[in-house]
Design a protein around this nucleic acid. Structure first.
Lengths: 212, 212
DNA sequence: TACGTTACGATACACTTTGTTCGCTATCTT
DNA sequence: AAGATAGCGAACAAAGTGTATCGTAACGTA
């Protein structure tokens, strides 16, 4: 890909991200993005047909990054293996979302959050549908799946609003607790993983090893 | 209130509601509302400053109607009295939402759903905060409340998308089941209420007496 | 019924935003 | 070095927003 295109695309993303931190998506104009990115008007439209498509591209980028990573697989075959597995995977998703900390808050704050959430739910549906048998409830399966994905997506929203303060593994534990209406399975103490997390924007602990 | 104002206001609401059934909120223009309502441009702006304010007014109307009704109070003092109480109240909310069936589908389908959901969650927060002690979980209270309100709001969304097919009392039971991760409390068989439900738009069972 | 008040309709207007076009220039790839 | 391609900037049409004005019609009240 042409170096110029890369630079332009990056500066548009960056400008969009910056603006999202100061104002709601629906009040950001294409002209503002153009000014912030310091590019020509026709250049923007050469890259994206509309502001909506820019948003869509940004979401695609984020989720490609988050869900492309191999999710951890618990090998223990205990009675609650699958439940622990789910908790681990959710924790990983939160970890990878943390890498986009700056974008997410603005992205989730306004209309753009609608699209972000629908992306997120699409991915989560795949994930949760493999764990439905862990919940033996007398409700329509379709509804149960909607409930699980919806409430985890809402959890992400809350977590981002809290500046992602409970650590990902704790947050995943809280989620499992409210979902199962009982204390965590203790999956947190069952394995040790290494995650390479880019904390460039927070500048504290880098390349940490996390016990979960 | 002047008869003319009433008529105009009603025709604006009606036009808006009609349009919401054919296209997304963000793509509806003020001019379209004006044409559909068959009123003058200045008349619209005499009633509402912006399209957003119209949406807000419509939501206010709906929720005033739904939450103004006295919610049922279970008097039984059994061990699960409060839980049954909650289920009953949620069922009633669903019943009253059913009266706005036509509006809701369009309202929830697009950006406008965002505002509707935030209204709904505001009311639900009040309700659920009185039942938090029924869930003795080791998670931040703030998060638990967010989870309960968020997942019930998502339940409403799902229910509306399903054309409100599971009856309100059943839907409330399903919700309680996924929330508590166990079968319904059987609150459904514990009391008999009468609800006057306006089914004018569906034209089948009217003024029904419902056992719940 | 008569009268003052108020809402409505219609048109026009200034302003903002969008998306496209076009000729020129700068930069990339090979 | 040369052809291809991306970017720039200005101009433009089209659509939408919100405001102002004025004559007309409907209202509520006495």
């Amino acid at each position: 890909m042409d170096r110029r295109q890369q630079k332009t695309r990056a500066s548009i993303f960056s400008a969009f991200s910056n603006l999202l931190q100061t104002k709601r998506y629906e009040h950001i104009t294409v002209q503002e993005i153009i000014d912030e990115a310091n590019i020509g008007r026709s250049t923007f439209y050469a890259h994206f047909e509309t502001k909506d498509e820019l948003l869509r591209s940004m979401c695609t980028d984020i989720f490609q990054h988050v869900f492309t990573q191999e999710l951890p697989q618990e090998t223990d075959r205990g009675c609650n293996a699958d439940i622990r597995n789910l908790e681990l995977k959710l924790g990983h998703i939160l970890y990878h979302l943390q890498e986009n900390q700056l974008n997410l808050k603005g992205l989730l704050a306004s209309e753009s959050g609608e699209l972000f959430m629908s992306f997120l739910k699409d991915y989560l549906r795949d994930l949760f549908s493999r764990y439905l048998d862990q919940f033996s409830l007398d409700v329509p399966e379709h509804y149960l799946l909607h409930h699980l994905t919806g409430s985890f997506a809402e959890t992400v929203k809350w977590w981002v609003a809290q500046d992602m303060t409970p650590a990902p593994e704790n947050m995943a534990g809280y989620y499992m607790a409210v979902i199962r209406n009982q204390a965590s399975t203790g999956a947190v103490s069952k394995c040790v993983c290494e995650w390479s997390v880019d904390h460039s924007s927070r500048g504290s602990k880098e390349h940490q090893t996390v016990k979960i």
